[in-house]
C-alpha cells in the first residue's frame, strides 16, 4: 500500500468522460507531476483529490483511509492555484496564518509558524504587506507558504508557474522542489510544460484524453515512451513510418533503405510501425552500426546545441549536436553520413 492511492478514478461531466480509469500510487515524500495537454483532465484529477469534485467511481486512499465523501475542509490537503488565490483583504502574514486561525490555534503559535513559513519562502520582511503589493512570483510563494503552514498530508499544485514570466518560472520551480524535498511532503504537480515536469519530478504521469498513458521517472518517460502520444508530447521526436520485413531480427524498410535493429519487433511481417528517435541520439559521421546519408536542409545555432535538419530520401530527420568551437556545422546542401544507434530507436506499435 502506498501513501496516496488513486484507484480506478472515473469522472464525467454530463456526456463528457473526462477522467478514465485513472490509477496512481504515490509514496510518502514523492513528487509526482501530471503532464498533458490542456483539457486532458489533469485539474479534474487534482480537484478530486482535494475534494472539490466527487469521482463517479473509484477510491482516493491516504494511508489506507478513503477520502471520497469527506469534505474538502476536512481532508487537510494543501492546494496552490495558478491564480495564487490569496485573500486580498488579508496581509501576507494573515494569509499564511489563515488555516491555523480557522483551526482555532493560539495567536502565539500562529505567529511562530507564520514566521517560520515566511522564512522558508524567503519573504520574512514582507509579512505586513498586502497581496496587491507583491509581484506574481512573491504572491505564489506566499500561496505555497499558506498551503504548507497547516502541515497538510498532501500538497497539490495546479499549474502554479503558468502565470509567471519565464525567468521567475525557472527559479520558482527550483525553489518549490527544494522546499518539497526539505519538508519531505508528498506532492502532485500539474503542468502542461514537459520540461517543467521532467526537471522537477520523481515521477511523471503523462495524461492523454483522461487516461494515464504512461507513468514513470523522467528518464523512462523521455527515453522509453510506451505510446506514440507520450513520445511526441515529451520532447522533440523524429518519427518514421516503416514496414516490418523480418520481426525476429528487427528488419524494417525505411522507404527504400533497409534497417536492422537486431531485436524482435512485436508486429507481423509486412505491418507498418513507427520508429521514433530523439534528436540527440543521431550524430554526424560514421560510428556504430547504422549509417544513412543525409542532405543538410537547415542548421539552427542554439548556443550550446546545434539543431540540424537533414533529408534522408523522402524523410526528414532532426538531430542535435553539441556545439564545439573547433568543429563548424556542416554546410547547407552538403551530403553527410548520419549515424543512428539502433538501441535508441524506439518502436511504437500503438
Amino acid at each position: 500500500m502506498a501513501y496516496l492511492d488513486l484507484l480506478h478514478l472515473e469522472k464525467s461531466f454530463g456526456p463528457n468522460h473526462v477522467v478514465k480509469d485513472f490509477n496512481l500510487r504515490i509514496e510518502q515524500g514523492e513528487f509526482v507531476s501530471l503532464l498533458g495537454p490542456s483539457g486532458c483532465g489533469k485539474t479534474t484529477v487534482l480537484r478530486m483529490v482535494a475534494g472539490f469534485e466527487t469521482p463517479n467511481t473509484g477510491k482516493i486512499l491516504i494511508s489506507g483511509t478513503d477520502m471520497v465523501g469527506s469534505r474538502p475542509n476536512q481532508r487537510n490537503i494543501g492546494m496552490v492555484f495558478q491564480s495564487y488565490a490569496l485573500f486580498p483583504n488579508l496581509t501576507v502574514a494573515q494569509n499564511v496564518g489563515f488555516g491555523l486561525s480557522v483551526a482555532g490555534k493560539k495567536r502565539s503559535q500562529i505567529a511562530e509558524r507564520v514566521a517560520e513559513m515566511l522564512d522558508l519562502i524567503g519573504l520574512a520582511d514582507l509579512g505586513a504587506r498586502f497581496p496587491f503589493q507583491l509581484s506574481g512570483g512573491q504572491q505564489q510563494r506566499v500561496a505555497l507558504a499558506r498551503a504548507l503552514a497547516v502541515r497538510p498530508k498532501v500538497l497539490l499544485l495546479d499549474e502554479p508557474l503558468s502565470a509567471l514570466d519565464a525567468k521567475i518560472r525557472l527559479t520558482l520551480r527550483r525553489e518549490i522542489r527544494a522546499i518539497q524535498q526539505r519538508l519531505g511532503i508528498t506532492t502532485i504537480f500539474v503542468t502542461h510544460d514537459q520540461e517543467e515536469a521532467l526537471s522537477i519530478s520523481d515521477r511523471v504521469v503523462v495524461m492523454n484524453n483522461g487516461l494515464a498513458d504512461q507513468i514513470g521517472t523522467p528518464f523512462e518517460i523521455y527515453n522509453h515512451p510506451t505510446t506514440r502520444f507520450v513520445a511526441e508530447f515529451v520532447g522533440t521526436l523524429n518519427t518514421f513510418e516503416v514496414t516490418v520485413t523480418d520481426p525476429d531480427v528487427g528488419a524494417v524498410m525505411l522507404g527504400t533503405t533497409p534497417l536492422v535493429l537486431n531485436r524482435t519487433i512485436a508486429a507481423q511481417k509486412g505491418a507498418k510501425v513507427t520508429l521514433a528517435m530523439r534528436p540527440e541520439a543521431a550524430s554526424l559521421g560514421r560510428f556504430g552500426n547504422m549509417t544513412l546519408i543525409g542532405r543538410i536542409a537547415d542548421v539552427q545555432f542554439l548556443g550550446s546545441i546545434i539543431r540540424i535538419r537533414a533529408d534522408i530520401g523522402a524523410h526528414q530527420l532532426t538531430l542535435d549536436t553539441f556545439n564545439r568551437s573547433d568543429m563548424p556545422p556542416p554546410a547547407i546542401g552538403s551530403e553527410t553520413p548520419i549515424s543512428l544507434p539502433t538501441s535508441s530507436l524506439v518502436v511504437l506499435v500503438k
Binding site: 482535494a50 474538502p72 475542509n73 494543501g78 489563515f98 480557522v102 497547516v150
Partner: peptide, 22 residues
C-alpha cells in the same frame, strides 16, 4: 474570484461561516 477564494479557504480547513465572514 469567489470560486477560487472559496476553494482556497476550504482547502485550508475553513467551514461555510468562516468562508462567508472571513
Amino acid at each position: 474570484d469567489i470560486l477560487t477564494l472559496t476553494e482556497a479557504a476550504q482547502g485550508l480547513g475553513a467551514n461555510w461561516p468562516a468562508i462567508i465572514f472571513r
